[in-house]
């Protein structure tokens, strides 16, 4: 009696496991046949896969993309899919969109390599794909739109050179060292400050794009007795974190801070330039407006540029107020 009581659930479990495996295999073999959602003629469905909603820059991008997409009446943007910084999640989301047979796909890749095959699958399914900001390792996409991190770093370096005409000591707060934007901005900055050999990059550390880490690290630099004239941070939160540490040591006037990103939010870089906390920052383009326009063209089979690189706009105390107004999307949230 006891024997059977034990044996039965085991057999049951086995059956369930087999059934599940079977379903999964079947699911893999045949791509779903359900037609594109709500396919009225002249009505297009567009999906956007975002790598990480939680970054302020990307949150801005989301808001702007929704705003610009609404301007095209024949296009419906599906709820934005958040990959939460996971390439695996993003791949499966892209695949789901392919299954749904959306009319166009916008992807902000979390990492190039893992997303390559997913984009290739979309391409094979004849879905136009617009890649934003980070590239993928295939040419099988319709358009790439992005800023140039090297240029962002280089412009920051040029600003540093002009702020320190007699040379000086510079510290650099870096994002996560293995991130491509970090690598590019770092290279651009270093190349630009070579223009003045009296500018020395004396310290540089990884602050992981985070404000509190930047505060802590800058505090340590100042405690070490580093004589810094300028700190370049690869994003605005790190620049502001550094500024906090300097102001706690009473050195906020003698050290200049340069950031990058230039978001038009109350807590962002443009405001900080306006308030004089940062000497300058650079608007790294969100590409939302251009992405919306490109998608619209693709859906109507018009020609688009395969690759377009957008300009990096410098924010100075002089133009900060105007740029803030121009880029402020908070009322559309």
């Amino acid at each position: 009696m006891r024997t059977r009581a034990i044996a039965r659930p085991r057999a049951l479990a086995l059956a369930v496991a087999l059934a599940t495996t079977g379903t999964v295999l079947a699911g893999c073999a045949s791509t779903a046949q359900t037609p594109a959602s709500a396919g009225k003629s002249g009505h297009f469905v567009v999906a956007y896969s975002q790598s990480n909603n939680a970054e302020p820059y990307r949150a801005q991008l989301n808001i702007q993309l929704k705003y610009f997409m609404e301007k095209y009446k024949d296009v419906e943007l599906l709820p934005i899919a958040d990959a939460k910084q996971s390439s695996a999640t993003q791949v499966s989301q892209v695949q789901q969109f392919i299954q749904r047979k959306v009319d166009a796909l916008i992807v902000s890749p979390n990492e190039p390599a893992p997303l390559t095959s997913a984009v290739a699958q979309a391409c094979k399914a004849k879905i136009p794909v617009v890649i934003l900001d980070r590239s993928v390792n295939t040419d099988c996409y319709s358009a790439f739109i992005g800023g140039d991190n090297y240029v962002a770093g280089k412009k920051a370096g040029q600003l540093a050179v002009s702020l320190l005409p007699h040379g000086g000591n510079v510290g650099e707060l870096q994002g996560i060292l293995s991130d491509q934007p970090q690598i590019d901005r770092d290279k651009g900055f270093r190349d630009a400050i070579k223009a003045n050999p009296k500018i020395h990059l004396v310290v540089h550390r990884e602050a992981k794009w985070l404000k509190d880490d930047a505060t802590r690290i800058t505090g340590q630099w100042l405690a070490q007795g580093q004589k810094l004239d300028l700190v370049y941070a690869q994003n605005d939160p790190m620049a502001l974190g550094g500024y906090l540490a300097a102001s706690s040591a009473g050195k906020q006037k003698s050290i200049k801070f340069i950031g990058t990103d230039g978001l038009a939010i109350p807590d962002g870089g443009i405001r900080a330039v306006q308030q004089g906390q940062l000497a300058g920052t650079f608007i790294y383009p969100t590409c939302a407006k251009e992405a919306a326009a490109t998608v619209e063209k693709l859906l109507h089979h018009q020609k688009v540029a395969k690759k377009s690189t957008l300009d990096i706009v410098a924010v100075t105390p002089a133009n900060a107020a105007a740029l803030y107004k121009q880029n402020d999307f908070s009322r559309y949230r």
Binding site: N53, R58, I265, P266, D267, R271
Partner: peptide, 8 residues
Amino acid sequence: LSDNVSVG
């Protein structure tokens, strides 16, 4: 709550 935007 924050809509993914930091609050200064």
